[in-house]
Computed example of a mutant assay.
Amino acid sequence: MLERETMSDQNRLVLAYSGGLDTSVAISYLKERTGKDVVAVSLDVGQGGESLETIKQRALACGAVEAYVVDARNEFANEYCMKALKANALYEGVYPLVSAISRPLISKHLVRAAHQFGADTISHGCTGKGNDQVRFEVSISSIDPTLKAISPIRDLSLTRDVEIAFAKEHKLPIVQTEKSPFSIDQNVWGRAIETGFLEDPWNGPTKDCYSYTDDPAFPPVEDEVVIEFKQGIPVKIDGHDVTPLQAIEEMNRRAGAQGIGRIDLIEDRLVGIKSRELYEAPGAIA
């Protein structure tokens, strides 16, 4: 799938770029393997961390010919989180959809960038183990079935050691090489924590697994919240007007301080395996 394309094909591809090791290495790797220039696409969906400008500059430093960055926080909150809230969308009836509802939004901008920059291929950084590969590729195909979707991490079984060696050889400005004890995906609607020692269901979560919530065994002074809804959408908190994004952010802080929104379960994945997952979604649960 990642063989070099003929010169008659379009000479650009779009990469869903997070700024981390996998996708930073993928820029040069994809260019070498396909002969195509890479356009990096990054969205802010409330995941925190580095600024879009920092991520943009790293993408360009890693060899991207263009960097398409979007502050999509309000779009995500208004058009995706609120629809999930009104539908009471819970995976397996247990936890609010976190990563799942961000993928169609990211895919929409990947396709938009492909059209804008004349690319015929979209690359994502998913492995072959999870649901995200399906979410991205089905979303992309539903918007524009003429676009190809590839994943170097999945298709070539790239390991972290191989990626680090490649980054050093090509002098790429990667910012982290030490392996995290677990994998995290987050946005304003919640956090998903998996892999590492958490794969053993007998291992309890450690304190460093959590970021959005405090230990519910030691809550602060109780906090009474009054939320006013209009047509299923929060419009006021304690009498002051809020946008959907502001409502989620405020409830993440206040409900998270009370330890609300922690979930620990063994879930079924679409690809046919089970996975132990932790979630934090204080705003969504509250």
Rank of each mutant, 00 (worst) to 15 (best):
L2V: 03
S8L: 13
N11H: 12
V14S: 00
S18W: 03
G20I: 03
D22F: 03
I27R: 07
I27P: 08
S28P: 13
S28N: 15
L30N: 05
L30A: 04
K36M: 12
A40S: 12
L43R: 05
V45Q: 06
L52H: 02
L52T: 08
A61F: 06
V65W: 01
E66Q: 13
E66M: 06
D71V: 08
N74M: 01
N74H: 10
E75V: 07
N78T: 12
K86T: 06
E92D: 11
L97A: 13
S99G: 14
L105D: 12
H109E: 08
L110W: 01
D120G: 14
D120H: 09
S123C: 11
N131A: 05
R135N: 02
D144P: 07
A149C: 14
L158H: 13
K171L: 15
V175S: 13
E178L: 09
I184L: 08
W189K: 12
A192W: 05
I193C: 12
T195Y: 05
T206N: 10
K207W: 05
Y212L: 14
D215S: 15
F218C: 12
F218W: 08
P219G: 01
V225G: 07
V226M: 08
I227D: 11
I237K: 02
D238E: 15
H240A: 11
H240P: 04
V242H: 05
T243L: 10
P244A: 09
P244E: 08
L245Q: 09
L245W: 09
L245K: 09
N252V: 09
G256V: 04
Q258K: 05
R262F: 06
S275D: 02
S275N: 03
G283E: 03
